[in-house]
């Protein structure tokens, strides 16, 4: 099931979206997520879904891949929407039992929650699918750079983020190996009640932590031997370049915002 989940994955490629500057993509995605909350009537939803459809087209990946990839999360969205549905008072009451009720306002808000959630998750998926983790880290650093004024350790944070991202696949591999080893010793990770499942996690977590601490120790030694003395006076190998396409992307999202505001009042 989790193998199908696409949020957080990166698929290397050369689409127009892949080539955008990560700063542009981060701004674009965040901006889109904020204005997703400006949706009101069906026209605004059509606009936003049409836009995200266009964005998916630009990733060069198939629609069905997105549909299947978001599949595992759909239940989370449905669950949230149902909570909204059952606990929102106001408007015409169709049904109620104790504190639970279904009202006309409830139907409206839960529909809105459902659709906005879907927009947001799709956009976040597009961002991670088309942007390498390292590029996201670079983008975040660049966008955080103004915070240096208030002595926020931007460079250290960026290095930490990039090292952490670098070790995610290594630790996932290790977790898989340890799980296999313990399954071979008779552990059932997906069987039994809550207590049994929690107990099954101990033989996974302890070796994983011991291993990670060992790795961290090795890494610190290697970094020190390579002359890392903190973030001062370092130069940077990787620099980001802003292209015309990035400016176009930002203009497009601004136009989307304007059209959205107009449609809200129609």
């Amino acid at each position: 099931m989790l193998e199908q989940l696409t949020l957080g994955r990166y698929i290397p490629g050369h689409s127009w979206l892949h080539r955008l500057d990560p700063r542009a993509k981060l701004v674009l995605a965040c901006y889109f997520i904020v204005i997703a909350f400006l949706t009101t009537n069906w026209l605004t939803y059509v606009l936003m879904f049409a836009f995200i459809g266009g964005v998916i087209f630009l990733t060069g990946l198939s629609f069905s891949y997105f549909v299947r990839g978001i599949g595992p999360l759909i239940w989370l969205i449905v669950f949230t929407a149902i909570l909204q549905l059952l606990f929102t008072p106001g408007g015409h009451i169709y049904w109620h039992w104790g504190i639970l009720m279904i009202t006309s306002t409830g139907i409206q808000t839960s529909t809105a929650v459902f659709l906005r959630f879907l927009l947001i998750i799709t956009m976040a998926t597009v961002l991670t699918l088309t942007t390498a983790p390292l590029a996201i880290a670079d983008g975040v650093e660049a966008l955080l750079r103004p915070l240096r004024v208030i002595h926020f350790p931007v460079a250290q944070t960026a290095l930490m983020l990039s090292v952490a991202l670098r070790f995610v696949p290594t630790l996932l591999d290790e977790a898989q190996t340890i799980m296999n080893a313990q399954r071979a010793r008779g552990v059932e990770f997906n069987n039994g009640g809550l207590i049994k499942r929690l107990r099954a996690i101990v033989p996974l977590l302890i070796p994983l932590f011991v291993g990670a601490i060992g790795r961290a120790d090795d890494l610190a030694t290697a970094m020190e031997s390579r002359g890392y003395q903190g973030a001062t006076n370092r130069t940077r190998y990787r620099v980001l370049k802003w292209h015309n396409a990035d400016t176009i992307a930002v203009v497009v999202i601004l136009v989307l915002n304007v059209v959205l505001v107009v449609l809200r009042h129609m």
């Binding site: 090795d218 002359g227 990787r238």
Partner: peptide, 19 residues
Amino acid sequence: DNQFVGATVADDVAFGLEN
């Protein structure tokens, strides 16, 4: 694995030079 600092090959080679 435990001495690979950079997120890519080139970044890792550059690490000492950056320092």
